[in-house]
Design a protein around this nucleic acid. Structure first.
Lengths: 109, 109
DNA sequence: ACCCTTAGTTACAAATTATTCCCTATCCAT
DNA sequence: ATGGATAGGGAATAATTTGTAACTAAGGGT
């Protein structure tokens, strides 16, 4: 995304700044392996194409990896790489902040 | 930015996702008060316009506040709100990750 | 009279991201 | 023969973000 970043934070942000990337990472922290359509179901507002793009970028960044089974119908499995796992503190901090401060969330009984 | 987010992480990301927002927050954590041009100097690649926009969005999000002194030439001071301060763990985690993993950074002696 | 400073704004162009809709391949079941 | 399931790809378009450059106000200094 960003060509170069003089600053550590910019760099981190450049890797996770896509609209769905942090959400994907979040899900993969909760369950280590997901198939494409399983992720899709977890993110109903994310179109198939966007999911595909975001996965591709995460993969390119080295945060996730995918395993393709040459079967019919196709089957792929996505999981975090070691690098991706190291992002856990960031994702966790963001999740916690959101839970603590997004009042619109889980308000109704 | 995002209209609504079903998920905590998306919400957090929506508030800090601008190109310079995390950097601004980062600087304000290090020094609690900055003037516009002081921030500008810390972020040479950020244009005046972008800085202005990002500050405005951070303010709208309630993460920073600004104090305007009605003097000539103008003087304004930016600082974190309480809400902004609560973002520290997120910013810190991102900074740490970037430092740990951005090899291009501080490589040469 | 003219320039400097600060903290912006405006207008416009360019680049990046996101959305929509439809298309592919292959095998299995009906 | 048709339709379904899975994991995408492609093209066109829309929306958003970012970049560039010039402009403003108001007072002080020379």
């Amino acid at each position: 995304m960003a060509k170069s970043s003089s600053c550590a934070i910019e760099y981190t942000l450049s890797l996770i700044a896509g609209k769905w990337k942090t959400v994907i990472l979040y899900h993969l922290f909760h369950q280590p392996v997901y198939r494409f359509n399983e992720l899709k179901k977890l993110m109903p507002d994310c179109s198939q194409r966007m999911l595909s793009l975001q996965l591709k970028e995460l993969e390119k960044a080295g945060l996730i990896q995918k395993k393709v089974y040459p079967v019919v119908p196709p089957k792929t499995e996505y999981s975090l790489t070691k690098l991706g796992q190291s992002m856990l503190p960031v994702i966790k901090a963001m999740d916690k902040w959101g839970l603590d401060h997004h009042n619109q969330l889980n308000k109704e009984p």
